[in-house]
Computed example of a mutant assay.
Amino acid sequence: MRGIFQMDPELQQINMWRRRLAETEAGLTAYVAARGDAEALEALLPIKAAFLRALPADDFNPSAWQRAFFTAQAAMERFVVRRFGHQGVAEFARHVGKIYGKVSYSGQGGAGEIMERIERQAASYRSEVELGPVSDTHGVLEIQHCAIWDYRERARDSGMELVLDSPCQYCTHLLSSMIASARLRACHSLRSAPDDPGCRWEAKEAGDGQEDLAWPETVRLMEDDVARLPMIQVRTLVAAADLDLTVRFYEELLGQPCNLRFSYAERELEVAAVGPVLVIAGSETALAPVRDADATLLVPSLDAYLARATEIGGRVVEQPKVVPSGRNARVRHPDGLLVEYVEHLGE
């Protein structure tokens, strides 16, 4: 028998969708306001009015509230991309995470509270989720199959206009920002298998000198023009057995931790980044296809930089594709340089 104070599971789902809708709407308003764009704020009003008018009349139908949230989310993503370009999606998501931190996060639950919220968000789409051990300062969560992808594709097939290639382009920034609410550092890896997308998240203590990862400092950093500039990475290719040793060397040399690490199972490669150094590890056979690239260029928007490169004489020799860290493509520059362009879908 259900306890007196235990909420009905369907009501819990409805409350989740309502809360997420309120956080997302407030986050978008905060993002546009932070840009100081009065015209965009005014243009946003009919978008809000449309999805508010479409809210379910039935307050006890979880599926209807899920559709309402997803429809509103898609409308807000379209607004951001059309107004500010794809690079605006990351900042929009971070502002939504900030709203979560100010409104929904208790300020006391630490990694455990936030990871449990992320678990509920994923489970609300019927994703396969496993929550690992959690504490105030550390937590691990693995989404073994992300059903948000499935829901999106069904919506697309039914005629809904979606402007993002994948939900990761929004979600990775949102979840990183939510974790930063507890002044923790977010680390994640994405699984690129097209029929079985998933990801793994870890929240850990930022450590000394890492306070800039928490709000509101992150907002100021990411809105700084410098943060949107592309970055050239030096590539080093090593044997699989040498990856850990190489990463430790550059961590000690540069005085900063490894900020990205993932397995590229389709190509039998392991990839790690320490600041401007990209370490790619594997067998000689696995490394052969990536040896010819002269450099890697991290860009805030792959589509925008491919367009810019081709306009001024570059030639795309390998079309954009999804990879574990986001999306990439290869461009031959007029001087003969072969460069991998990469847009990360996360911190």
Rank of each mutant, 00 (worst) to 15 (best):
F5Y: 15
P9L: 08
R18T: 09
R18G: 07
R19L: 11
T24S: 13
T24I: 06
A26N: 13
G27P: 03
A33N: 08
D37V: 01
A38I: 05
E42G: 06
A43R: 15
K48E: 10
L52V: 15
P56V: 03
N61V: 06
S63N: 11
F69L: 07
A72V: 01
A75P: 03
R78F: 01
R83E: 08
G88Q: 03
G97Y: 05
Y100D: 02
V103S: 13
G107T: 00
Q108M: 12
G109T: 01
R120W: 09
R120P: 00
A123K: 15
S127H: 01
G132R: 02
V140W: 06
C146S: 12
R152P: 01
L164A: 00
S166N: 10
T172W: 12
T172N: 15
M178Y: 01
S189E: 13
R191Y: 14
S192V: 08
D195A: 11
D195T: 13
R200T: 14
E202S: 10
A203K: 03
A203S: 07
E205Y: 02
E205P: 00
G207E: 12
W215K: 05
V219G: 11
V219L: 11
R220T: 11
M222R: 12
D224Y: 11
R228H: 09
T236R: 14
T236N: 07
D242W: 04
D242T: 04
L243V: 07
L245W: 12
T246N: 05
R261L: 00
F262R: 04
S263R: 11
A265M: 10
R267L: 14
A273L: 12
V274F: 00
G275H: 01
G275L: 00
I280H: 03
A281M: 05
E284M: 10
L287I: 10
L287W: 08
R291N: 07
D292M: 08
T296C: 13
L297K: 06
A304W: 03
A304L: 06
A309T: 09
A309H: 05
T310G: 03
E311M: 14
E311V: 11
I312N: 10
V316D: 06
V316H: 09
Q319N: 13
R330H: 13
G336T: 12
L337M: 13
V339Q: 14
Y341E: 04
E343C: 03
L345T: 13
G346C: 09
E347D: 11
